[in-house]
Simulated scan of single mutants.
Amino acid sequence: MKRLLLATCLFGFAASAQADEVKVAVAANFSAPMQKIAADFEKATGHKAVLSTGATGAFYAQIKNGAPFEVFLAADDETPAKLESEGLGVKGSRFTYAIGKLVLWSTKPGFVDPQGEVLKKGGFEKLALANPKTAPYGLAAVEALKKLGLAEAVQPKLVQGETITQTYQFVASGNAELGFVALSLVWKDGAIANGSAWVVPADLYSPIRQDAVLLSKGASQPAAQALLQYLRSDAARAVIRAYGYAF
Rank of each mutant, 00 (worst) to 15 (best):
G218S: 07
S220E: 12
A242N: 08
Y245T: 06
A28N: 06
A75T: 06
N131W: 07
N194F: 05
V50T: 15
Q166K: 14
V90P: 11
S52K: 12
M1Q: 13
V186D: 14
E152F: 06
F180Q: 04
A202S: 06
I208Y: 00
R209L: 07
L6N: 02
A191H: 15
N29V: 11
E125D: 09
G92H: 14
P80C: 15
K120R: 13
T53C: 11
K133F: 14
S16T: 01
H47K: 12
T163K: 06
Q210V: 13
L215F: 08
A128F: 05
S52I: 04
S173H: 09
T167P: 10
Q115H: 15
C9K: 08
T163L: 01
T8M: 14
K121R: 13
E117D: 04
P222G: 01
A212R: 05
G161E: 00
A140Q: 05
S196T: 09
G244D: 11
V200S: 07
L214D: 08
P80A: 12
A19F: 05
E78H: 09
L129I: 12
F13R: 12
G195T: 10
L139P: 11
L145M: 11
P222R: 01
V171Q: 11
P80I: 04
D76S: 14
G54Q: 07
A182S: 10
F13W: 12
L214G: 11
R237S: 06
Q166N: 15
F247N: 05
V181K: 00
Q35T: 09
Q210K: 10
F13H: 13
P156D: 06
N131I: 04
Q225F: 11
E21A: 03
Q18M: 09
A236F: 02
G66W: 04
K126W: 03
A182C: 15
A197C: 01
L6R: 14
V239R: 03
N175I: 13
G54D: 02
I192V: 13
S16F: 15
G110Y: 07
Q35C: 05
G161P: 12
T53M: 10
Q160A: 13
L150R: 11
L5T: 13
V71R: 00
T96M: 12
E177A: 04
V142K: 15
V181Y: 01
A130C: 14
F11K: 15
A128Y: 00
K43A: 10
Q35L: 04
A135S: 10
A238Y: 03
V22K: 12
L158N: 03
D76N: 13
P80V: 04
